[in-house]
Simulated scan of single mutants.
Amino acid sequence: MAKETFTEAMAVAKDPQDSKATKPKTSFIGFIADKGIFVFTGILVLTAVLFVDGFASLQNVTDVFHRAAPIGIVALGMTFVVITGNYLDLSVVAQAAAAGVILIAVSNAYNLIIAFAVAFVVAIIFALANGIAVGYFKANAVIVTLATTYIGLGLLRLLSGGSQVFGPADGPIATFGTSKLGPFPYSAVVLVAVTLILTFVLTRTNFGFLIRSFGVNSSATRLAGTNTGLIVIGAFMVTSMAAMFAGFVLAAFSNTAVSNMATGFDFQALAAIIVGGTSVFGGKGSVPRTLLGVVFVSILSNVLVLVQVSYGFQQVAIGSLIVLAVTVDALGRRVSKK
């Protein structure tokens, strides 16, 4: 208990000259950085309901959450890596694809239990490879996870022959992909469940506290006697588990899987995380805010589709949104230090 108290005190300690940072800030930039996602999501939803035909239908709303689920689950898990200050995990693309292919291919040959076990082992291997390289050898997380992405996708293509695998039409995977709990598809239920579990882990466990304290002040956390390498491995482990479940959900959508099925997941998940207010500088963020970022980006994409905006302009809009969110975050941090 004493260790945790000392770590917390050290992690949040500020230079005496920065004592003003603890005072509430009322600047516009500070407000936007902290509360903007709530305001802009409300404005976007209200505008879409009033002016976009078909948006407010129950079918469209459930479809938005259904399609957002895989990317959302990845983003929720990656939030842990971003909070530690390691920026992101690019290998979620390979991890989600591997999980989806393994789920269908291995369950076809054996059964679901063995498929789950194999996917779980693969997720652990990814987490250990990324976490050890970044946490213990201090390698750049972007380069490491980019390398494990290429290695993972290469091995997946070699083992699967690059071909698409199909599950039985009446099997449990296909059933999951088309079933609903009331009006909500199972994929959305999984998204909510993952949100609740990871929120508890980040806010109510010692591991979650260490993730946040390491992101705020890694040196102080290390000086307090904490094995910071294990913290980084743990963050990558959470991301890998989330990517695994995202791959399962994605494979269930069409009851098929292929090695390139998760292309773009890294960028889209990062967009949701940043828009939700998790700082790329580490130490600041939350799982519910990431979920809100997922909702905002998904609704924006849905609205652009409904008003028949081309895919190219959709990419420009999402990219511009990320630049704006990062800029506001940086300005907000600068204002809070004045």
Rank of each mutant, 00 (worst) to 15 (best):
A235W: 04
V61Q: 01
L181E: 04
I273M: 10
F296H: 05
G100P: 13
P288E: 02
Q59V: 04
G30P: 02
G319V: 09
A9K: 07
A330D: 03
N108S: 14
P172F: 05
S219Q: 11
A105V: 12
G283M: 11
E8C: 02
F6Y: 06
A105E: 15
A272K: 13
N108W: 13
T79L: 11
S163A: 14
I197V: 15
V294P: 03
L196R: 02
V49T: 07
S19R: 06
S240C: 09
F253N: 01
G131K: 15
N302F: 11
G135P: 11
I132K: 02
L181Y: 09
G77V: 10
K180H: 10
I273A: 10
T195M: 13
L306H: 03
Q308T: 14
S219I: 14
M1N: 03
I233M: 05
V201F: 15
T26F: 07
A193I: 15
F40V: 09
L250M: 08
P24V: 08
T278L: 06
F248L: 00
M261P: 06
R334H: 07
G77K: 14
V194F: 03
F214H: 09
G215D: 08
F51D: 01
F40K: 06
I43P: 03
F166Q: 12
G264D: 05
F40Q: 04
K337N: 13
A117W: 04
M241Y: 12
A105P: 15
I71V: 15
I83P: 00
A169V: 09
